[in-house]
Design a binder for these strands. Structure first.
Length: 424
RNA sequence: GGAGAGGUCGCAUAGUGGCCUAGUGCGGCGGUUUGCUAAACCGCUGUAGGAGAAAUCCUACCGAGGGUUCGAAUCCCUCCCUCUCCGCCA
């Protein structure tokens, strides 16, 4: 969410952001509603002032006759106020609904584009491996090593469900702890956060209203399953005014993540690339309201994620996400894509985002700066590691001629093996 | 799930229909006094919106949302959260 005052005073900047982000927001409708709501609110305020004055006169009235006359007058005003307030409320709700759809303004360094295909590769690390045998995809590898049971997973929970088994199950634990340890060592506070969240938390991150169909609902309890721990970490400080000395707050949370994958029928139907439930370690920073500082943090988070990919010996590239592929709330965003040999291309495994105060406004999360002024914080988030998706490049890049998997050195202490072979 | 007690300014508390423009204490900030520190004393101390050149003024906010009333922190309803006990439970 942007500051309404900012939108009012800089409609051209917002209009340009709407265009670049390929947003469907009707900005002129929003501006007109804003004018109406402001005028209405002012008029109601004047009426209320009158009413307050008369109410005091009622208290101090000398005779019953005067008192009755004043009460009648105040009652008429009260009726007028409540009538006008109903109108205002309806208009304001419309305005707020539009306000939630206003995209953030992309940073100048962000390339303009319509979608994923116009993201710009800004860095490559490692070389895609050459194999002198026929490459197998992760499904073949995992099934042969008895790490994965897709059929029985589907029996339990339908398509895009899976069962990790043997080294597959252990690998997920190993990966999560590996990532958690790495980020914790950099001064981030490790957390286990709720995977269930209220609507307000999802509105707060920007998952709602636009991405609502991607989220599982639990209507009986008015709860939702989070698609990322970002939701929980944004929601946990909602409404607070933090002391300046608390910032930056650096957190790293592991949580299960749930995504309906509505509209992705036919994409990545094979294997564990795109599933309804996965586990993720997520980095999160709550920082001061300083754009340049925020963009520095974005690079820090990117560096942390890159180190993890490097430690796992995965060839990757860093993509600067273009305006049309960025979420509404984002100012600037990088994806890390790891090399997937069976597909002969890079696939997204990490997503790094700076949102400035866009989420902070939604959850009303502020801090007191050095001068005592209350300001909205900035928020950033980036994947540390998400499994089982990361298993796709991990297993495929490190496969050997006999179908076993070489475990990268950094992961060996966590997994307790240097080669994943068939279970004994 | 059942019974009960609560939620008031950064913290602690007072406030049971109009004198609440929310009192008091603590903390914080500024000042006076002072070799230094401390103490004492004095003043200031929330958020949001609006009017104004400014001093200042107006409106809303006492967990959230409704309602009663000329008037609600206070009365009524719904919900949320915390605590105590019972039940269930990894």
């Amino acid at each position: 969410m942007l500051d309404l005052k900012f939108i009012r005073e800089n409609p051209d900047i917002v209009r340009e952001a709407v265009r670049k982000k390929r947003s469907t927001l009707p900005l002129d409708e929003l501006l007109e509603l804003d004018r109406i709501v402001m005028r209405e609110r002012q008029e109601i305020q004047d009426l209320r002032e009158q009413q307050n004055r008369i109410s005091k006169q009622v208290r101090d009235a000398d005779t019953p006759e005067v008192k009755q006359a004043l009460i009648a007058e105040a009652r008429a005003l009260g009726d007028e106020i409540s009538r006008r307030e109903n109108v205002l409320k309806a208009e304001d709700e419309q305005l707020q609904a539009l306000l939630l759809r206003v995209p953030n303004i992309p940073d100048e360094s962000v390339p303009e584009g319509n979608g994923e295909e116009e993201n710009v590769a800004v860095k490559h690390w490692g070389d895609p491996p050459r194999f002198d045998f026929e490459v197998q995809d992760h499904v073949a590898l995992m099934e042969r090593l008895d790490m994965l049971d897709l059929a029985r997973g589907a029996r339990v929970a339908g398509s895009r469900s899976y069962i990790l088994k043997n080294a597959g199950a252990l690998l997920e634990f190993a990966l999560m702890r590996f990532a958690l340890d790495r980020i914790t060592k950099k001064g981030f506070t490790p957390l286990i956060v709720p995977a269930l969240a209220r609507e307000a938390a999802l509105v707060g991150t920007g998952q709602f209203p636009s991405g609502r169909d991607q989220i599982y609902e639990i209507p009986k309890d008015d709860l939702f399953l989070v698609g990322t721990a970002e939701v929980s970490m944004t929601g946990m400080y909602a409404g607070e005014i933090l002391p300046h000395s608390d910032l930056p707050i650096k957190m790293v949370a592991m949580s299960p993540c749930f995504r309906r994958e509505a509209g992705s029928f036919g994409r990545d139907v094979r294997g564990v690339m795109r599933v309804h439930q996965f586990t993720k370690v997520e980095q999160y920073i709550i920082a001061e309201n300083d754009p340049a500082g925020s963009l520095d943090w974005l690079e820090v988070l990117l560096g942390n994620a890159e180190e993890i990919c490097q430690a796992l010996e995965l060839p990757y590239r860093v993509m600067l996400v273009c305006t049309g592929d960025m979420g509404d709330g984002k100012v600037k965003s990088y994806d890390i894509e790891c090399w997937v040999p069976s597909e002969g291309r890079y696939r997204e495994t990490h997503s790094d985002s700076a949102l400035y105060d866009w989420q902070a406004r939604r959850v009303n999360l502020r801090y007191r700066d050095e001068s005592g002024k209350v300001r909205y914080v900035h928020t950033l988030n980036n994947t540390a590691l998400a499994s089982p998706r990361i298993m796709v490049p991990l297993l495929e890049n490190h496969q050997q001629a006999d179908g076993s998997i070489r475990v990268p050195e950094a992961l060996q202490p966590y997994l307790g093996m240097d080669i994943i072979g068939p279970p004994k």
